[in-house]
Design a protein around this nucleic acid. Structure first.
Lengths: 234, 234
DNA sequence: CGTTGTATTGATTCATCTCAAAGGTGGTGG
DNA sequence: CCACCACCTTTGAGATGAATCAATACAACG
C-alpha cells in the first residue's frame, strides 16, 4: 500500500535533515502526491544560473556543486550540497531566477517539489517558515565567513580548509581516502584559484607529509598540520 | 501626546524600509514601549563579533560597517548598513553570538529593540516572519555574488565595483562627490586588499580620467568606464 | 603652529596566473 | 587484449598581480 512505500515523503528519512521536518503528516502527503523523482547523471546540470525554477529539488542521494560564472569567465563553486539539502529554495523565496548553477558531482537522485507546495506551506505553516528562516540565517553566516576567507586568506590556507571540510563533511573510506572525489579543477573552483596552483599546492602538502594522493583520491595524514596551515601558521 | 511623537515606532518612517513594516499597529506600539534610542559616535562599535546580543538595532541615521577579522588578523568589511537596516537580526534568529562587528562610519542614531519583541513577533506574526525570510534570501544572494567577486575578480575590478556601489547606494553631493566618505583603509577593507594598493589603484583611475579626488572625497567622472572595468575590460 | 593621523610614493619580495608542453589514466571499439 | 582517443593531471617557466616595509607628504585639529 502507498502508505508504506519508502518513496513517500511521509516515510522518507531525508526530510529529517531539512526544514521539511517541520511539516505535518497531511502536508507531507500532499507534497508526496505532487513530487517527481528524478535521476541526474554525474556532470549533468540540475539547473543553470538565471533559470526560473518551477519548484525545489530535495537531494536524496549524490552530491551537487553550486557554482556561478564570474564576469571574467571563471567558475566559482559556492557550495557543495548533498543528501538532505534543498536546492532552489532561496531563489524561490526571493522570487528570482536562480543565482547559481547546480551540477551533479556524481550520480544523484532528487525529488522535485513544485513551487506552490512550498510557497503554500510558507503561507500557512509558521513552524515551517521559521525552520527555513533559521536555516537561511545559518547559511548567511557561512557565506559571510566564506567571503572573509576568500578575501583574506592565501591559496595555501584555503586549500587546507577545503580538505578539512571535505573530510569532516563527507568522511573517509576504510583506507582513509576522502569519500567525495573531486577533480583538481573542481577543487580549484572551490578554493578560487587556477587548477595548476591547486595541483602544485597539493604536491607541496604531500611533500610536507600532510596528505597522500592516489590518482584523484586524497588521504589526509596530518589533520592538525592542516589546521595550523589553515589558520596561517606556515 | 505620545501617540504622535515621531520617536514612536508607529510613526517612524524608517520601518517602511525593512521587515518591521509587516507588523501591526499594536505590535509596533509594544516594540516602541520597550525600545531604547542610542547615539553612536563615529568610530564607536555597536557590537563586536562573538558578542551575544540582547536584541537588534534598527538604524535611524548614519552608516555602519559590518566586518570580521580573519585568522591572519586583517579586517574584511562584509557589508555597509545605513538607514532602515536592522543589525543583529541574523545572529538572533540562528541563536548565536554575532558573526560580525558593527562600527559606526559616521555619527549614528539607532533604536535598540529587545530580543523577545522580535522573537515574539516571529512566533505569532507569519507575515513578519515571511518578510524577514524574503529579506534574508536576498541577502544570501548578495553574499554569494560577493564570494564570486572576491574569489575571481582583480583588485581593479573590485575597486571599480565598490565605487559604483557607493555612488548608487549613497549618492553624490551637488559637486558630484560621493556622499559617503570612507577612509582609504576602509575602502581597502571592503575591496579586500592592502591600503597601499587601494590608493595606487585609485591614483590609476584618476590618471585614466575615471575619477577625481579631493582629500578623502571621490568624484566619479566616467561611470561607464568604471562599469567596463568592473566587468573586466581593462 | 606643532602634533597626530592619514595619504602617498618607491622599491622589493612574494603569491598567483597563464601559457605551453609532457605524462597518465580510463574507456571504447576492433 | 591491445591500440587509440579523449580527458585529466603534472611540471616548467615567465609575466603579472599584490603584499610588504620604509620613507615622505598632507590635512585636519586643537
Amino acid at each position: 500500500m502507498a502508505e508504506h512505500e519508502e518513496s513517500r515523503c511521509e516515510n522518507c528519512i531525508i526530510r529529517e535533515l531539512n526544514s521539511l521536518k517541520a511539516l505535518k503528516k497531511e502536508e507531507l502527503k500532499a507534497i508526496s502526491d505532487s513530487k517527481v523523482s528524478r535521476s541526474i547523471k554525474k556532470g549533468e546540470a540540475l539547473f543553470k544560473e538565471g533559470e526560473k525554477l518551477g519548484g525545489v529539488y530535495c537531494v536524496r542521494n549524490g552530491v551537487s556543486k553550486l557554482s556561478k560564472i564570474s564576469d571574467n569567465g571563471k567558475d566559482q563553486i559556492v557550495k557543495i550540497a548533498s543528501k538532505g539539502e534543498v536546492l532552489g529554495q532561496r531563489s524561490m523565496i526571493s522570487e528570482e531566477g536562480t543565482n547559481l548553477s547546480a551540477v551533479a558531482l556524481n550520480d544523484m537522485e532528487v525529488c522535485f517539489i513544485p513551487k506552490d507546495q512550498i510557497t503554500g506551506r510558507i503561507q500557512d505553516n509558521p513552524a515551517f517558515t521559521q525552520a527555513i528562516l533559521k536555516h537561511m540565517a545559518h547559511e548567511l553566516k557561512i557565506a559571510d565567513d566564506f567571503i572573509v576567507n576568500m578575501a583574506q586568506k592565501t591559496v595555501n590556507q584555503r586549500l587546507a580548509e577545503v580538505l578539512l571540510y571535505l573530510s569532516t563533511t563527507f568522511g573517509t573510506d576504510e583506507e582513509g581516502y576522502l569519500v567525495l572525489i573531486l577533480s583538481r579543477a573542481d577543487i580549484a573552483d572551490v578554493v578560487g584559484t587556477a587548477t595548476e596552483l591547486c595541483i602544485r599546492t597539493l604536491a607541496k602538502f604531500k611533500k610536507q607529509g600532510l596528505i597522500e594522493t592516489k590518482g584523484k583520491r586524497i588521504k589526509i595524514l596530518d589533520q592538525s598540520g592542516l589546521e595550523k596551515l589553515k589558520d596561517g601558521f606556515q
